[in-house]
């Protein structure tokens, strides 16, 4: 369990995403200010084969928090990384801590 200091909390974009480099991995961070939540998933879109998920639109589908890929619009659950359109596809998700004004990400994928 390695917590890595990634960026300032003011570097996050409200209701939107940014990408951070965490121990050589690309991690997409999504910030929902109303709930005070930050989600972290891998930035790689396995359908479009490009590092773009941080630039997708976020929202919810049937109560699950999701990001829609900006390339071909598949949805990924932000808590589990499972693709809603194809449940055999799952992308890594990471734990996030807000420590004061800093954002920390655990570099080991938790799923």
């Amino acid at each position: 369990m390695a917590w890595i200091d990634v960026c300032g909390s003011d570097d996050l974009q409200p209701d939107s995403g940014v990408c951070a480099l965490v121990a050589g991995q690309q991690v997409a961070l999504f910030y929902l200010p109303e709930e005070g939540t930050v989600y972290a998933i891998h930035n790689y879109d396995p359908f479009g084969n490009a590092n773009v998920l941080s630039r997708g639109l976020i929202g919810d589908i049937n109560g699950q928090p999701v990001v829609a890929s900006p390339l071909y619009k598949q949805h990924f659950n932000l808590e589990t990384g499972v693709c809603l359109e194809d449940e055999t596809v799952q992308i890594p998700v990471y734990k996030v801590q807000i420590d004061g004004a800093r954002v920390k990400v655990n570099s080991e994928a938790s799923s």
């Binding site: 929202g59 919810d60 589908i61 619009k73």
Partner: peptide
């Protein structure tokens, strides 16, 4: 209701 999605937001 909810948070919105990639249909209603844009």
């Amino acid at each position: 209701k909810g948070r919105g999605c990639e249909v209603c937001k844009p």
